[in-house]
């Protein structure tokens, strides 16, 4: 048992060790290569990093649950964009404008509801038709993105509300609003996955669906709840981000699903389901953002950054595979 829990600790700790290595590397490399004078490990810089990882981070946390459950959701980027459009557009509706600042919670509510409904559509289709979630959400990814374009054509949707901007830019105990949302989401989902019946059953279904059914677990409702949850989180991510920026392009949020999956996988969650952790995904999110910022800090351009992240993703998973092969006797597949 000791050996088991130690192996688990190493697995869960690996992503954090990787973050420490990144910090050390960029701090030292920054001394020689940096294009600016500020140190990489500068406190404000780190706070900003957390804030910037929030939009994809919040989605990635939801994706963790979906993937532990044995599904995947490719539609989150489109859901993110549609929720943003609803948020900003709804505030310009005449009756909403009449409400003054009371329009804000209502607009948030509309946006979040949009996310939940879109997620529920995914969940219901997966549950009732039995079609693989990959296919279903591939379809809804295209469909939801279509809705975004139908809403406002190629035009951006904009609405700036300064009260909202102030809220989004506020710092409480040093952390930005977005960071609080990220950490709060992580805490709640961590509790859900480790302490509740729903979390327990989600792991069981992802690990062995047949055995879960035989234990009397109803698979469909758990799927539905998780898809509604990730829809909600995609919308929450949009709400947090666009409260500050105030303008959404119809192409916003594209590839977010892939970045979220990257962070989840980097955190050690298995594509096949049944294994993974919210805390490790948080690590994965931070590790990716560190890479982006760090490489930028030492003067690399975006193309290089993407190339490096891709290479690191593959190397990390290869390493993980090597470490997890119990010995030479394992099948060489």
């Amino acid at each position: 048992m000791k050996k088991d829990s130690r192996a688990n600790l190493i697995k869960q700790g690996a992503i954090w060790a990787f973050i420490v290595v990144e910090l050390a590397f960029f701090s030292i490399a920054g001394e020689f290569l940096s294009v600016t004078d500020t140190a990489f490990m500068d406190f404000d810089n780190m706070l900003l990093l957390l804030k910037q990882s929030a939009p994809i981070g919040i989605i990635a946390l939801g994706m963790t649950i979906i993937m532990i459950n044995g599904n995947i959701d490719l539609s989150v980027g489109a859901t993110f964009a549609l929720a943003a459009v609803v948020l900003l557009d709804s505030m310009s509706w005449p009756f909403m404008q009449a409400l003054g600042d009371w329009a804000i919670p209502l607009a948030w509510g509309f946006a979040l509801l949009t996310g939940v409904v879109l997620g529920a559509i995914n969940g219901l289709i997966v549950w009732k038709t039995g079609v693989d979630a990959f296919i279903v959400t591939l379809g809804s990814m295209l469909g939801y993105r279509g809705l975004v374009f139908m809403y406002n054509g190629e035009q951006p949707t904009s609405h700036l509300n300064w009260t909202l901007v102030d809220f989004a830019e506020a710092q409480f105990l040093g952390l930005h609003t977005a960071t609080w949302f990220l950490l709060g989401t992580a805490l709640i989902l961590w509790l859900v996955m480790t302490r509740t019946v729903h979390g327990r059953n989600a792991y069981a279904i992802g690990n062995n669906r047949e055995a879960a059914v035989n234990a009397g677990i109803r698979v469909g409702p758990h799927f539905l709840i998780n898809f509604m949850l990730i829809g909600f989180l995609a919308a929450l991510s949009a709400v947090v981000f666009y409260s500050e920026s105030g303008s959404v392009n119809p192409n916003d949020g594209m590839l977010y699903e892939l970045w979220a999956i990257t962070a989840v996988v980097l955190g050690g969650t298995k594509l096949a389901g049944g294994y993974g952790s919210i805390v490790s995904t948080l690590g994965g999110v931070i590790a990716i953002q560190l890479l982006r910022k760090g490489l930028g800090h030492i003067g690399a351009d975006t193309e290089t950054v993407n190339l490096v992240i891709g290479l690191i993703l593959i190397s990390v998973l290869f390493l993980d595979r090597q470490l997890n092969r119990k010995g030479r006797e394992d099948l060489k597949t």
């Binding site: 302490r195 509740t196 690990n207 062995n208 055995a211 035989n214 294994y275």
Partner: peptide, 28 residues
């Protein structure tokens, strides 16, 4: 294939069909 969740520990496997009834507040 049909009886056990191999990625779970002994206790969680044993209580799987009845965790619903073993909650204190929202938590198991």
């Amino acid at each position: 294939g049909q009886g056990l969740i191999l990625g779970m520990n002994c206790r969680d496997n044993m209580t799987l069909p009845q965790v619903d009834d073993m909650t204190a507040g929202p938590f198991v």
